[in-house]
Every structure is written in structure tokens, then in C-alpha cells.
Simulated scan of single mutants.
Amino acid sequence: MDDRSLLDSIRHLIGEDETADDCAGFDLSDGRILVSSTDMLHETTDFPKGMTEFEKGWMSAAVTLSDIASCGAQPIQLLVAVGLDDPARLVPFMEGAVACAESVGAKVAGGDIDSHTELTVVTTGFGIVERSCCCRRTGASPGDLVCITGTPGLAMAALEGDERYRKNLLTPVPQVKAGQKIARAKASSMMDISDGLAISLYDMAQASGVGFVLDSKNFNLPDVCSGSAREYYLYGGGDFGLLFCIPPACLSALDTDYTVIGTVVSEKGVWCDGDPVEKRGYAHSW
């Protein structure tokens, strides 16, 4: 069983809408939405070996801020709860978390400190977005174009030893400005691809009740020294680009870099060049 299957077992308790997205939304009285998201990271499963404490702090903040960015929201606050095996690690760790938050205009505003057998971090973020510009995973419609920002696979290449992309892996930058521009251009759905492009496509397909047809001729494949660029592109995790769907007529209003990789179809599933794409990516397993 993985974390997605486990989530399915509690959807009836929380709600389909509430479990369809990485962020929760709360309507404010002034026409805006307060979005929130939370993530848990463990040293043994989530931090590549050799990371500094600063980089671990940065990554811990980035995973949550990226989810907020994928709603088209402006992050405003981050809470950081840290379980420590060694209290001396706290200051450099928090320096990284604060630096990441400040880089996107947010503030670390509190949290918790506890003892633990390994470094364990829970980050909870909050953002604000106009109701008319809030993007979710659930809005993709047949005929929309499937697009991404960034180049999937660079973080995986770094994990496999390609030092050119070390920053992509260890200090990923949440795509806040791009997310806001995509939302204002009237994208129908959006999410980040930190778990990998293929599994993110399946997550969005499930949430929106649609399918995706990809054309590999349009892939902006990574320049890698070894391994399969296509494998990294589809299945490598750790990249913080955005996956979004948008009506073709709205694309001309989008003022950010992007790549069109496919189209939305009514039949559920994900295909590339006519063949099914394997549902695979980063997941926690039991």
C-alpha cells in the first residue's frame, strides 16, 4: 500500500473535495481565499545524503510553499515544527527555512520544537489568492492543453550524480510568480510535479475526471550525462515545476515560460505517443 491508496481509505471521512488537492481553501469575506498546506519530511526517506542543515531547512520550506504556488496564491506565512536528534542542528536548519520563505515573500511565523530519534519536520504554509484566480487540480476539461514549467528530470539527474543540477535537487525554488501568472491567464487546473510528472498527471486526471494524451516530440528533455532522459522526465521526482491545463484560447495571455506537452481528453488515463504511461513516481509505501 502507498500513501495514495491509504488516502483513499479516509476520503469518506474528510470529503472528496477536501482530499482532491494539496491545499485546503477557506473563503474570506473580501473575495479572496486563504489556502493552506502541510507536509512531513523525515531524514532517512526525504533528504538526499550529503545535504547541509541549511539545505534541509530550505527543502522543508520549499515543498509546502510549492503547493501554495500551485494554487496561484501568494505565500504569506510558514509554520515549522522540528523534531531533533541533536539540538545543535536547529539554527542552521532554520536559517535555510527562513531564507526559502523570504525568497518568495513569506515569513516563518512560528512552529514547534521537540526531541526525536531522527530529524523530522512538519511545515504548514498559508497563502492568499483572489477567488477568481484560485487554481485546483479539479478543473481540467477535454480540449485543454497540458503544459509544464521548468524541465522535469533535473533533480533526478542530480541525485544520480550530475553536479550541474545540484541546486535543482537541494534548493528547489517554488514557482510562485509563474503560478500567479498561470492562474491569471485562466488555467483550468494546476499542481506541482515534485512527486514526478507521470504520477502527477495521474493525480490530476483522477481529481478532474479526465485523461491526458502526451506527445513526446514536444518534451523539453533534460540534458543528462547518463541514464535515460525520458525516464528522468516522466518519473523523476524532486522538481518543483508546475503542471497545468489551460484552454487554447487563453494561452496567448500567459506571460511565463512553459512547454505544451499534450491535450486533455475525456477518456480517463494517461498516454504518450499512443501507449499507456506507467503510473509511477515518488510515494510513501507500507
Score class of each variant (00 low, 15 high):
P222A: 14
A198G: 05
V213E: 14
Y232P: 15
I199F: 08
L221P: 07
L169G: 05
V224E: 04
A205Y: 03
G209W: 12
P172K: 12
S141Y: 01
N168Y: 08
I246P: 04
A140H: 03
P222T: 14
V146Q: 04
I199P: 11
C147Y: 02
D195Q: 12
S188P: 01
R164G: 14
G237L: 07
N218F: 07
P142F: 11
F244I: 00
Q180M: 07
R230I: 11
K177I: 00
K217L: 05
G236H: 07
T151D: 14
G236C: 07
I246W: 01
M204E: 08
D215I: 02
L242Y: 00
L243G: 06
L154M: 13
T171D: 15
R166P: 05
M191F: 07
R184M: 09
D203M: 03
G196R: 09
F244E: 01
D195P: 08
A140D: 02
G196N: 09
P172Q: 13
L159P: 00
G196S: 10
M204C: 12
M156A: 13
L170H: 14
T138K: 13
L243S: 10
G227I: 00
Y235V: 01
A158Q: 04
M204D: 10
A185T: 08
C250W: 02
A157F: 06
L201F: 04
C225S: 11
E163A: 15
T138E: 10
D144Q: 02
G150F: 03
A178S: 11
D144P: 06
G241A: 10
